[in-house]
Design a protein around this nucleic acid. Sequence first.
DNA 1: TCAAAAGTGTTCTGTTTACACCCATGG
DNA 2: CCATGGGTGTAAACAGAACACTTTTGA
Lengths: 303, 303
Amino acid sequence: MEQKLNKDGLTEEEFLKAYDPNKFERPSVTVDILVFTVADGEKENYRKLPKKTLKLLMIKRGNHPDIGKWALPGGFVNMDESLEEAALRELKEETNVDNIYMEQLYTWGDVDRDKRTRIITTSYMSLVDSSTLNVKADDDADDAKWFAVSCKCYEENKIPNEKGYVVERFFNLNLENEEDKLSAVVKVSKIIEGKVAKIKREILESDGIAFDHAKIIVYGIERLKEQAKNTGIVFNLIPELFTLTELQQVYEVILGTRLLKANFRRKILNVVVETDKYVKNGGHRPSKLYMLNPDYIDSKDIY
Amino acid sequence: MEQKLNKDGLTEEEFLKAYDPNKFERPSVTVDILVFTVADGEKENYRKLPKKTLKLLMIKRGNHPDIGKWALPGGFVNMDESLEEAALRELKEETNVDNIYMEQLYTWGDVDRDKRTRIITTSYMSLVDSSTLNVKADDDADDAKWFAVSCKCYEENKIPNEKGYVVERFFNLNLENEEDKLSAVVKVSKIIEGKVAKIKREILESDGIAFDHAKIIVYGIERLKEQAKNTGIVFNLIPELFTLTELQQVYEVILGTRLLKANFRRKILNVVVETDKYVKNGGHRPSKLYMLNPDYIDSKDIY
DNA sequence: TCAAAAGTGTTCTGTTTACACCCATGG
DNA sequence: CCATGGGTGTAAACAGAACACTTTTGA
């Protein structure tokens, strides 16, 4: 290859030798991971199935800033690992699971996200099957704990203005376990000016949740719903073999709606294959176990 | 607020004062923007409508590394601007448009993306209406030029293995204008192991396209298609007033498929409102002009 | 016996797809 | 006149929502 020179008359080799990244001030980069799982509650009586809840893994901060508050697992990206590798490493350190579903969500780059310095963070979402979950996270030195999540929109306003209109949605985020109750209010505004739509997310209140993690969580839950509707992502939350009711309950807890059994089954039948195994779950007819049809992992529009 | 101490006995204030981001080596952060537009070609004869093409804005690199190759517009993020502000600033510098649709796509964090140092880049996608476009980009000192884009999958293999299977898709990316022809081959592999699906993108060949931008472009085109199907994003590519055929052609050029006129119109009618204006386009019936129904900007599933 | 869940069938409705047809224009 | 696009109608196939009903179990 011929040696091209830049306007200072340098070859690429000379240019790279002279390049000093420290000449410019620059941000730090972290990854944060939303680890979701769906766990069974208590069995109310011998007949009833346990109620499922969506849970999120949080870690109690042991240092400034926001010491004592709960944050998403994550940390600084090392120079020798990709973003995804960093996220997988952090996840492995916290939950001791690997070969796990992980997906990049969004990169948060506001200037004042962190009191220490300018920190840009890339958020990932990860789904684990609670039945295979190593409980290490439950009694870790770092104080990692699962919280039941709920995120509800309690108010929605459409406000016209000169240029178009704004749709404001107020979300109540609640994280709860036996010991702690965290909460936040996040306002999501869809700002429409002419044909250009912009989305703005603001934390109005945040009680016990570190940094701007409340809005990262709200965003992640929104994305989880979307992905549940359009992909086979939910199968990462349940065991290899499952009953159709179990699967339906996972959809219901993620989407936050009840589904009609007959319709759900019709739709999902293309995506699963029945096995010849059954489970007895109490005072009712035993249910057939199904497994994911591997050919349909990348199919769209599952629910 | 009471002063909590960390394990070194420091208050938050003391901790922050002692915090030195330079203690750790850290990556640089850039933004890269995919600026798409849809432009008319030549009118073949007095009857025929001009053919539309999807175009992408690229910039010829004037410095090492990859000097002389074409790259996406973008650059380093300043300490006092958010990622989005950085992208808007770069875009304004290059195309002189503001109040433009812009959406974050993905953050690319592989270790060896750039020869200078570790550089993480967040990619954005932006859509502009070519009729309102300030032509500054066409004769800029930076040598910014529009390229007609085409990206076709020319081979697809499903390869089973012990753990599951891999779907390999090979894409031929072509960027072309009067003066230059750039091309690349990108392999997108969907790796399925059990129920966990992973996507890997690799550049197999890259002719004239700088850095790893070929795969960023392939990803962006994929996302553009998705968003065209599910949101009203395409209205950012056309003028305020448009004919339904014009709109249909924009969908067709993005999705890469022909659509049936009658069906397209039925579907789109909820999203647009007719005006009482008409255009005469040559040797055929004049067509009614429509505009976007502003209430439907955030509606899903448009095409 | 009976509550709880497993599992199936039917009806109504709206959407998607494919195709056929007529209308208006200007060189 | 007629190629070209503008614009509408219709029938078949499919997908969605709502609801009603039967079956099986274990304390």
